[in-house]
């Protein structure tokens, strides 16, 4: 075991893993964190804690992750290279380990121009792949970048990365995933998937390259709340591809039934994703909709008991 995390043990035992995303609040209300943790903690293997997502200042992912640990849940600490240089990032890896955090997701992060601090200086000292390699070096060699001085102690960490199968150039995406696996990624959580046939093409390449045997791939899904959200994501969120058929279903949903339709579509997508070779788990990103995760897992037979956990 590289980390001793629950997520790692579920994946290594060959069982289907489920993770879900928790967005920290804009403020420091612990009750909000606790309420979301309660919705997710007992029904998923690990909870991703986003790091100032969309470049909006929020309660820190480190603080929320530490709180989840203290509540008995397992976090996946998301860490972006937008806001910290290699000194701060590596220090935070050590900090995460000392707080009992065992999973990390290494990301470059949404560009600062998207958020509420548009004139912040973007750091980007290193990128997400270089961060993966840095965490692996700390874990496996006990050394930080550019140094051969051994670190005291032992950092155990299950290293995650993201990949977007739908962003261009698509033919390069499986190869970039291989780069991430070679850099040290133990698991991959994908961008949210709506276009199953495009994702199948991606996974075909991934399995042909044997990458599903080198790292665990968790398919990302985001339930749609409304046609408005669907069209916004399709048009405005780079790298999200929503097929016309899904957009039409959301558009044609009867008044007040948008959310139900979105959940139904999400469940159908999950059923299909589970059957794709190389998909070892599900990553559910219910944006400010953590309350519906249980229902989705119930409907798709993915509650822990259904997965022999």
């Amino acid at each position: 075991m590289k980390s001793g995390s629950r997520l790692e043990s579920v994946l290594d035992s060959g069982k289907f893993a489920v993770t879900a995303e928790l967005g920290p609040p804009r403020g420091n209300l612990n009750e909000k964190v606790d309420a979301k943790a309660k919705m997710l903690g007992d029904i998923v293997d690990a909870i991703n804690v986003t790091d100032n997502q969309t470049a909006v200042v929020r309660l820190s992912s480190m603080a929320v992750s530490a709180r989840l640990v203290s509540l008995g849940h397992e976090p996946v600490l998301q860490m972006v290279t937008r806001d910290r240089n290699r000194i701060a990032l590596q220090s935070d890896v050590l900090g995460a380990a000392s707080l009992g955090i065992k999973n990390m997701l290494c990301l470059s992060g949404d560009h600062q121009s998207f958020g509420n601090q548009k004139h912040a200086k973007g750091v980007y000292d290193i990128d997400s792949l270089q961060l993966i390699a840095a965490v692996k070096r700390i874990r496996d060699e006990g050394m930080i970048l550019d140094s051969v001085d051994p670190l005291e102690g032992e950092v155990r960490m299950f290293i995650g990365a993201a990949e977007n199968p739908f962003a261009e150039p698509r033919e390069f995406r499986p190869l970039r995933l291989r780069k991430k696996a070679e850099a040290g990624a133990d698991f991959i959580q994908t961008q949210c998937i709506y276009d199953i046939s495009l994702f199948r093409e991606f996974m075909k390449e991934v399995t042909d390259l044997g990458l599903h045997e080198r790292c665990h791939i968790l398919a990302g899904v985001t339930p749609l709340k409304s046609y408005r959200m669907a069209s916004y994501m399709a048009e405005r969120v780079a790298g999200v591809v929503i097929p016309e058929s899904i957009l039409r279903r959301m558009k044609d949903a009867p008044e007040g039934k948008g959310a139900e339709t979105g959940i139904a579509i999400c469940c159908e997508l999950i059923e299909e994703l589970r059957s794709i070779e190389g998909v070892h788990g599900l990553h559910l990103m219910a944006i400010e909709w953590e309350s519906r995760v249980r229902e989705i897992l119930e409907k798709t037979g993915l509650l822990p008991a259904d997965r022999d956990l």
Binding site: R82, Y124, D127, E163, A167, R176
Partner: peptide, 16 residues
């Protein structure tokens, strides 16, 4: 590259 990524492209490239 807006993020000066050394190992791009990130997931945000869209229609080039």
């Amino acid at each position: 590259c807006a993020k000066s990524l050394f190992n791009g492209p990130c997931g945000g490239s869209h229609n080039g």
